[in-house]
Design a protein around this nucleic acid. Sequence first.
DNA 1: CAAACTGTTCAGAAATATCTGAACGCCCTT
DNA 2: AAGGGCGTTCAGATATTTCTGAACAGTTTG
Lengths: 156, 156
Amino acid sequence: MDTEQQLAQLRDEFIARMGVVAANDGMPRMSGQVFAMLVFEGEEVAFGDLAKNLSVSRATISTSIRLLEERGLIRRINKAGDRQDYFQLADDAYGAMTRFALGGTRRTKSEIDATISKLPDEAEDVRGRLEAFSGFYEAISAALEDAATRVSKPKT
Amino acid sequence: MDTEQQLAQLRDEFIARMGVVAANDGMPRMSGQVFAMLVFEGEEVAFGDLAKNLSVSRATISTSIRLLEERGLIRRINKAGDRQDYFQLADDAYGAMTRFALGGTRRTKSEIDATISKLPDEAEDVRGRLEAFSGFYEAISAALEDAATRVSKPKT
DNA sequence: CAAACTGTTCAGAAATATCTGAACGCCCTT
DNA sequence: AAGGGCGTTCAGATATTTCTGAACAGTTTG
């Protein structure tokens, strides 16, 4: 069982790291850890096991799960004859992740554009600068859109 | 002076919104507001004016400035005969912003790869899943890299 | 129907991130 | 050399995010 222990340790390290990554990305650490756990264990993981393995309350798991579900990153599975809920990565989890980021950049661009449209005609210089700013978010959006198709497609 | 008042109000709204955007991006709100102010006012803005206009202490401005400078988003200007520091958007601010994001995705990919390289040979399935995860960050990195060149180039 | 589970919700605790005020070193002016 | 304004730093206050424990509604089991 040496290999199993080693794997378990690697898994815990991986989960811890992805928690930090999530936190840096402006996401609750726990959501990142839940996601990481589901990546590592490919099979469905039970709600209770998530709480136990990640050493947090079931309330926290419930909240983390909700966030991940809303973003389309995981899916909930009901097994017949088992009252517990199980979870697994969504089919196109990485595509969903990309599209979520895309939504953010698009929203930001819209907000900038909203300001631009209200500028008085005289403010030519301000308009120019805000348009450059908007253009930046447009470029990022285009790049993400491109990545989204590429990420989602691997059903070759 | 009606137009000026209108502009001032639009500016404040813009700044407030960009503060929220920054916060959602996992950045201090104030850094986003300082950045937005520099985008709006194209000219150099004095350190003291930043504090006054954004209604925060000079300590906060100092910290925000440091973050933005570290990321290459703004530059500090010393005017002869004036003891105050002035600030302006960096020449390639949006390029720097893109490269900063790129640094993050690359770092994350490295962390995933580090785990992969430690996996025992038997763990074929886990390796496959982590490689898919790593591949996702690779795709995003490539997209950002692409965007970076496009964002930085407009020196036509 | 009572007891033992499930997952969710929410008020409040705990942990973090953010901002402030005071102290400081520096440079300039007087 | 003294005084005033500059930006930085850091301990501590404040605000915000994140987690927990208890209460709850719904199911299943005995």
